[in-house]
Design a protein around this nucleic acid. Sequence first.
DNA 1: GGAATTCATGAAACCGTTTGCATGAAACCA
DNA 2: TGGTTTCATGCAAACGGTTTCATGAATTCC
Lengths: 334, 334
Amino acid sequence: MNNIKDVARRAGVSASTVSRALSDKTCVSEQTRARILEAAAELNYSPNIIAKSLKMGRTNTVALIIPSIRNHIFPEIACGVEDEARRHGITVILCNTDENDAVEKEYIAKLRTQWVDGVIVGTMKPDSDHIRRLRDEGFPIVLTSRYYGDDGFDTVAVDNFGAARGAVDYLIRRGCRRVAVALGMSELNIYKDRFAGYRQALADAGIPFDEALVIPDAGGSDELYFRVQSLFSRGLAPDAVFATNDPKAIVVLRALRDAGLRVPQDVSVLGFDNIELSAMLEPPLTTVSQPFYRMGALAMKKLICQIEAKESGETYAPRVNLMDTELIVRKSTR
Amino acid sequence: MNNIKDVARRAGVSASTVSRALSDKTCVSEQTRARILEAAAELNYSPNIIAKSLKMGRTNTVALIIPSIRNHIFPEIACGVEDEARRHGITVILCNTDENDAVEKEYIAKLRTQWVDGVIVGTMKPDSDHIRRLRDEGFPIVLTSRYYGDDGFDTVAVDNFGAARGAVDYLIRRGCRRVAVALGMSELNIYKDRFAGYRQALADAGIPFDEALVIPDAGGSDELYFRVQSLFSRGLAPDAVFATNDPKAIVVLRALRDAGLRVPQDVSVLGFDNIELSAMLEPPLTTVSQPFYRMGALAMKKLICQIEAKESGETYAPRVNLMDTELIVRKSTR
DNA sequence: GGAATTCATGAAACCGTTTGCATGAAACCA
DNA sequence: TGGTTTCATGCAAACGGTTTCATGAATTCC
């Protein structure tokens, strides 16, 4: 692989002149530049970006840390992140943590080695102190999808409370009175907020909250499957189930179908996220749509702002951007 | 951010000694090493990996080039690649081309700048000469999923011909005689091979090939939807449809349902890929399963072998690894 | 006890860029 | 014509590590 000195030798100039010629600096005569360009082309030269990064203190690379690329919302986010990054000549490193804190910490430690200019984090939990520490060192960070809320992280998310409240309100306006709820991971704020929105919608309608209709996240999807069916056998029969994410809604649909219940005639089912799959179910799922692609793109935009502010020494005020959600009405609600 | 000299100063030794102490070299006295480790910890030091990469000529980073992370097979492959990479201290850069050749070339050009030690390519087409050129420069490359076959690329794939032949043979053994086929992108070998397998299975059973039952890839899913329905209105009514990938099978199922045809009583539907979704359809899809996760992991393993062979100057013989597929029988075939 | 060996350590070169500063030629002006 | 300005160019110092080689002290051996 040829380097800048090889080009310099062939063009009969010094390495500095080659560097200037190739980065469009003005102080190079036209004929020298032409000679250099020719030499570079002949040698099939491309500059060593690692050397450049070392010198410049910037890698034009960012990391995207997510729980799992198999979780359907993250490919969407990743696409948004990547398209926006590419538009700015930035490369994205993919870091899948598999919800494993050790792996996440390993990644974070690696990022501190000046690999990347910044990081987009989709794995934030209340106890993610290593991420807080990274931020406190002045490392550019944007949270997306998951957030923590009370401590000044730059964030892109949706109003989970409002969206859940609106969605449950829709169920109630369609005549549902006994709405069960299937919760997600209890330590995540997004699910706390969706749960709070659910309770608020009940309160707004004057419907008393019934603890018996709450299915916590514990256990896998089998657990959920049986808990849904047991609601009916225990005579608690809800007339709707609000699943706080679409994968849970899929399990709920299956549990209901297998129990001989018809959706939506006997029970309405409402999801959250609008993953691609949800339109293809039988019946197609009514759910809350999040603009994942745009969220990823905005997170990247904000990250670039942070990186540039850091370079130029400006201050940057982190803020929480809430994107609009939309209730997608399909056939799983009456 | 502290560097190795800061640590050296604090520990009262030279930078070389710090370097040796931190990389577990033997020629450092125990007490010096202890003092250095302490100093490093106090300064919260982590070595600049860019500087290290520059010196070592190795970045411990590889790129994964895929058409789209939204295509359901690629998150699986990416997981396999990443898990295996992590096990070897290697980081993965995600490159989504969106099936856009310009974007792909842009990425390839970037990779030549010594960013990465190697690349796994899931976008190979017959005309991907820029990828061939990269390989001819001695750049470590492994193809996966898509392949080209006749020119010595290191490759991980499945026997698409055999798998398709076996699957269609299954349909025939279950009594289907008029099997339509929905083809994928015509320039990709994987679809050519699946199509060839289909024809072979017909030939094996002495069933004449009928051009009228072939639905080419042209147009989007709407086109496919109407072509499926028109087969029936034109009196060509097949008793089975072999979709050469699962997303096409989903469209086929919808077209049939909307036309009032029952699956599998009136028509059997067979897919290919076994994406997660296929088990959740109504009816659940019979399909050919590919071990995507293991394919990704193996591709990464092979890439590491190539990289290490290149470093040590050994020769490496590229070969094509074909992984086993499995016919997953569900409810869409009679 | 002196020569040979072992061992920890430091100095300096190197990886391939970018860039501040010095230099020298050409152009300009009085 | 001589001094100043402009401009293209080269030299050398960074960036932050690793590694070769030299050095000098401590240990071993006869």
